[in-house]
Design a binder for these strands. Structure first.
Lengths: 116, 116
DNA sequence: TTATATCAGTTTGTTATGTCAAGCATTTGA
DNA sequence: TCAAATGCTTGACATAACAAACTGATATAA
């Protein structure tokens, strides 16, 4: 993991793939977006509804970043009216394993509405 | 959120375990904390160093919430000086599957430092 | 015996992040 | 002609996370 860390100093996370992956997935709405796209590509508003509760500003920003990271792809269909559609790339599809792991965990360990 | 949703309105996520699980895990530092505790229980500062970069106020808050959710357990050892230690509960340990899935994904799809 | 360090946090004030409400341009369908 | 849907953008605002300092206890080093 590290090169030379002086004793008790903080852990070296440069460049640890897990650490980075967590940083990508931990942003608000990201996992919801991916999960929504796992059952098919969607337009902006459609995605927005599927995700549930994310405001368009945040959604647009998130979707742009995920596109940049190669997790989702955006296609503008030049029909009339032009339609956008968002879909998962291969990297995005691969996140299904993560969602499924979360799913299994949730079903097992979050049985009742989690009091906040 | 709602009970009777009219047609095209947003998806009903009350109460979907996956949705809730994502909401729990998506908070900043949560996955980092869990990952750090997977290789053994730690004290507050030790955990802080292992997590890397989380400020103590946020860490304290997160750790309290995770304790509340039954994911980690806090023990105060009544030695002199008293020491705290944080460990994963069974539910917390079970999240190893999620971390591993993220790990595999990260290694496969985040090969180079992700330009931001 | 002061000085320094560690532990487990809390407090303070600032900045980053996300949210809300609204609006815009386009294009159908009624 | 009008309302409604699509795919966003804008600006004001609230909340979350930040760094930095600090508490108060104990322990170790000079």
């Amino acid at each position: 993991m590290a090169k030379a860390i002086a004793e008790t100093t903080e852990a070296d996370h440069s460049f640890c793939p897990v650490y980075e992956a967590i940083n990508v997935l931990q942003e608000k709405w990201t996992l919801h977006i991916i999960r929504s796209l796992l059952d098919g590509s969607k337009g902006f508003n459609e995605l927005s509804r599927a995700v549930g509760g994310c405001n368009p500003a945040t959604l647009a920003q998130r979707v742009e970043k995920l596109e940049h990271l190669g997790i989702i792809s955006k296609t503008i269909h030049s029909t009339m009216p032009p339609r956008t559609s968002y879909a998962l790339t291969e990297a995005g599809q691969a996140l299904q394993a993560v969602i499924e792991a979360i799913d299994r965990w949730g079903r097992r360990y979050l049985p009742k509405p989690p009091e906040r």
